[in-house]
Design a protein around this nucleic acid. Structure first.
Length: 421
RNA sequence: GAGGCUGUAGCUCAACUGGUAGAGCACCGGGCUGUGGCCCCGGGUGUUGCGGGUUCGAGCCCCGUCAGCCUCCCCA
């Protein structure tokens, strides 16, 4: 029986890898333009970190984490997202003492034990961007703009931005109370899942896709009516900022988040037509999280995460283009002496930064040129007994099908000049 | 976690009502022992996802299982 990859875990073959690497590279360029610094976080953390940050009663923590005891009997979890780890790092290393705002990001795999689907893997890559400090609504507007900039950097796509505010610790409880009160009256009209949510996580009912629940939700007062004065002006400043940046958005009063740590501004960026998993980026503000993890109370934070595989789906539909660059030179070597000499040529070409390929196999010239052709090189260097005796190499231009003899001493310079032109 | 659809070569797919697995591309070799792409010739590279069952006989039917996809759930 052949051993196969785990369910929901995917290999990245060279053509996949080059594509994802290209996207991440583009994202890094944009992020550095905005002053974000990259960090690396552990993939494995104490389970407690996610229970405290994401929330004990969230679906992610309750049924989607890879949690197990390590060899010392400690309960550990493969990170399902990066924000919790980022905040842990922020507090653990006293980064709150550094000049603020502090702009950080990280790229890497996340793990969630869900049922796999297109655009939903159990191991998937996120670009996770976080912003710590004393944050104004305009900073948030800029952060959202940054997310859109990244998404559009390799190629224009048509993302749809949805924004909402969840209110703060002062005003959200009133809304929650209202929800529970109103929805309890019509509990029987809600779906089974929502009836359970009513007790555990009532805000999520706003997000339910069932028609019956949607109907009920429509009759409710929107969260905006419960915002306190501070939340209200915060949100309107944010919208002003977005308008100033020329960002079009949809205000979705039913938008909520599955992670408990969010407060006030939240947003989601979707790409219609991707199927059920059409959210390629989501984020929001999580002011209380740093405090919850033992940091100082005055630190605000906001951020977002981009799902790299989903982003790629949005950009390239079905087929991912290959971003692999072909080598520039192929050495076709005939005879043992030539092959030995070829080692030196390849070495010096590569030292000069010229991508070079050679196989050192005992193969016919025909076969070697075939290899060269398949690799898509511009130049083939043919070296056999004849050339060695004359102290030259045959330099063949594979596109023009023209060739010339070049003295071995001038070979490197000649190839270099071809490489530049 | 729930329901559904699917699973044949590296890839895309074919094989009548059950009769013993084939085509294109790719790959390898040759035509051409020192000149690639085009062309021609040759090569099938397979535990029909896996395990059982029914049957004289299973790629096809049944059961289980694994995986992918779709919807739900959830979310990036």
């Amino acid at each position: 029986m052949k051993i196969k990859a785990l369910r929901g875990f995917k290999d990245w073959l060279p053509e996949d890898f080059s594509c994802y690497a290209h996207l991440i590279d583009k994202a890094r360029q944009v992020l550095s333009l905005y002053g974000f610094k990259e960090v690396k976080l552990p993939i494995l953390e104490k389970t407690e970190l996610f229970v405290r940050s994401i929330g004990e009663v969230t679906d992610i923590v309750q049924k989607e984490t890879y949690t197990f005891e390590d060899r010392n009997g400690e309960l550990v979890t493969l990170r399902p997202e990066a924000t919790a780890g980022m905040c842990r790092m922020f507090v653990e290393h006293g980064l709150f003492n550094r000049p603020k705002p502090l702009k950080l990001f990280t790229v890497g795999p996340m793990f969630r034990h869900e049922r796999p689907q297109k655009g939903r893997l159990r191991e998937f890559y996120q670009i996770s961007v976080e912003f710590f400090g004393k944050l104004t609504p305009l900073m948030e507007a800029e952060l959202i703009y940054l997310a859109l900039q990244i998404l559009n950097s390799p190629k224009k796509i048509s993302p749809v931005l949805e924004v909402n505010s969840l209110g703060c610790a002062d005003c959200r409880p009133a809304f929650r109370e209202y929800l529970v009160k109103e929805l309890s009256k019509v509990k029987s009209r809600l779906c089974e899942v929502c009836q359970q949510r009513l007790e555990r996580n009532p805000l999520r009912i706003l997000d339910c896709k069932k028609e019956g629940c949607k109907e009920v939700v429509k009759g409710l007062k929107p969260i905006s009516e419960f915002w306190c004065e501070a939340c209200r002006s915060h949100f309107s400043s944010l919208l002003k900022g977005l308008k100033e940046l020329g960002v079009s958005y949809e205000q979705n009063p039913f938008l909520v988040r599955g992670l408990d740590y969010y407060q006030r501004t939240i947003f989601e960026i979707k790409v219609p037509g991707l199927g059920a998993q059409d959210t390629i980026c989501a984020g929001g503000r999580y002011d209380g999280l740093v405090l919850e993890l033992g940091g100082p109370p005055e630190i605000n934070a906001t951020g977002f995460a981009i799902g790299v595989e989903r982003w790629a789906l949005a950009l390239f539909e079905e087929e991912k283009p290959a971003f692999l660059k072909p080598p520039f030179v192929f050495l076709a070597l005939l005879g043992e002496k030539a092959r030995l000499y070829g080692l030196k040529i390849a070495k010096s070409l590569r030292e000069a930064g010229i991508p070079t390929e050679a196989t050192y196999e005992e193969k016919s010239l025909k076969a070697q040129l075939k290899d060269a052709n398949r690799l898509g090189v511009k130049l083939a260097i043919i070296l056999g007994e004849d050339e060695l005796e004359k102290g030259v190499a045959t330099l063949r231009d594979m596109e023009k099908s023209m060739q010339e003899e070049v003295p071995l001493k001038e070979l490197l310079e000649k190839v270099k000049s071809k490489c530049l032109s």
